[in-house]
């Protein structure tokens, strides 16, 4: 079954009402998550909070449509990969600072305060933290929900 059939399958996930509403809301949740991440250095919020909001969009998908659809959208392999990429990029940014003389030196142009493109590497750090936190939380969530269910079905 491809993704379209899976998502229309009425035996999976919740009712049609929940599925429709979730489909509508999901893009807005992701948009809001991205806003929190990208504006992290000038408004409240940041990588951690934004990453959690991104995960919530996928958790909503998982709850409404069931584990298979969510796993088809973002598999455990890619969750783990994005998690690693986020963490690695963060450390790499730290090492790049050493070119300026200090580990984690803010080596990029600081810009003028209050603008979106400012604060040097802080927005980049926010993005990497969001990747790390979001992917890791999603991996934990599928670890706790989907994996457990697979084992119990096999036992049956």
């Amino acid at each position: 079954m491809d993704l379209k059939e899976l998502s229309r399958d009425e035996s999976r996930g919740m009712t049609l009402i929940v599925k429709t509403i979730s489909r509508l809301i999901m893009s807005f949740v992701i948009l809001f998550g991205c806003f929190i991440i990208i504006y992290g250095h000038i408004t409240p919020g940041g990588g951690f909070a934004g990453g959690i909001i991104l995960t919530i969009a996928y958790v909503l998908l998982l709850l409404a449509f069931g584990g298979k659809v969510a796993m088809a959208k973002l598999s455990n392999f890619w969750a783990s990969m994005w998690d690693n990429i986020g963490a690695l990029s963060f450390v790499v940014i730290g090492f790049l600072g050493m070119t300026g003389g200090y580990f984690f030196l803010n080596f990029l142009d600081h810009g003028s305060p209050g603008h979106l493109v400012s604060a040097g590497m802080i927005p980049l750090c926010n993005i990497f933290i969001a990747l790390k936190v979001g992917a890791a939380l999603y991996a934990i969530f599928i670890g706790l929900s989907v994996y457990g269910r697979i084992v119990t079905e096999e036992e049956k």
Partner: peptide, 12 residues
């Protein structure tokens, strides 16, 4: 920094 970065890179 090295063990921290390599911990992630090893897994990748």
């Amino acid at each position: 920094g090295i063990p921290l970065g390599m911990a992630v890179l090893t897994l990748m």
